[in-house]
Write a protein that binds this DNA or RNA. Structure first.
Ligand SMILES: [Mn+2]
Ligand SMILES: [Mn+2]
Ligand SMILES: [Zn+2]
Ligand SMILES: [Zn+2]
Lengths: 144, 144
DNA sequence: AACCTAAACAGAAAAAGTTTCTATTTAAGA
DNA sequence: TCTTAAATAGAAACTTTTTCTGTTTAGGTT
């Protein structure tokens, strides 16, 4: 389990709660909001409160198991990240608008230091949306 | 005033409140959060409430006078947009991390329909941070 | 297997952010 | 000037998020 070693390496504990959260993200089609995850956890953990969910989501995002998804308006959402977000491993994510599948985008078009419009680039936020291959197949089948 | 015609074209009214908001954005170095803007408006409009500020920020963003800045974590922030965000005029913004100056980035590296990591791209969110030319000069003067 | 300790936990509470509602006022066209 | 759709204030409700405190637990150590 990649996620488990990320947790350990960060000096965090691998609790039943966190295992379950990761499992829910694995099963889920698409990014989850705190309330949504809380809803799903309540079945297995009736005493689980929303504050704990927030705490764990942030902890898991900080250690690279999850990433914070942008582009859902004001909604806060997280999704599994299959590779840790280290400085040495810069990447972005593309999310399927149909099924929620997350793709790692290794190639980045924005390089720190490049000049853009007279500015020297020092940081960037990129969040992509698209249609994944399986969903593209379904699309063409549906209309064919 | 470009902003004023944008407001008119959207069928909105050009109220003193909105004039003042635009003026504050012009004067401000950097994007503003609703509470920050409210704080500044209270001097001139003592009876101005936060709900009205939210309403107007959204109205001005919808008609293209402002844009919603991403990349400030969970904070909601807006800034002046010097060109309307029409489909025909796609662009992004780069914000100076030193002074808050906003640059329009006309060239976009992500084209709808292009294939990325097996996904067909259908949308993207890009928010850039950088150092503007004047601030770069100041930087080099300071260390020289 | 029984400790030990830092971390995680639940739950309440507070704080912050945001939206909704209604009655009143106003911008701007006729 | 008259008319009307839009903007406004203010209260209230609502949602989201954080903080706090005391209790429990994971995981390493003995
Ligand atoms: Mn990732
Ligand atoms: Mn713009
Ligand atoms: Zn898909
Ligand atoms: Zn600058």
């Amino acid at each position: 389990m990649e996620a488990h070693s990320l947790i350990k390496d960060a000096g965090l504990k691998l609790t039943p709660r966190r295992r379950a959260m990761i499992a829910h993200f694995s099963l889920s089609s698409g990014p989850l909001a705190p309330v949504e995850l809380h809803e799903r956890l309540k079945a297995e953990f009736p005493r689980c409160g929303l504050p704990g969910v927030y705490r764990n989501l942030e902890a898991l995002a900080d250690c690279g198991v999850l990433f914070r998804v942008a582009g859902f308006g004001r909604e806060r959402r997280y999704a599994l990240c299959s590779q840790p977000h280290h400085e040495e491993h810069h990447h972005h994510h593309i999310i399927c608008i149909s099924c929620g599948r997350v793709g790692q985008v290794e190639e980045c078009l924005y390089q720190e230091g490049m000049m853009i419009d007279g500015f020297r680039l020092v940081g960037h936020l990129v969040q992509l949306r698209g249609v994944c291959a399986p969903c593209a197949v379904k699309e063409s089948e549906g209309s064919g």
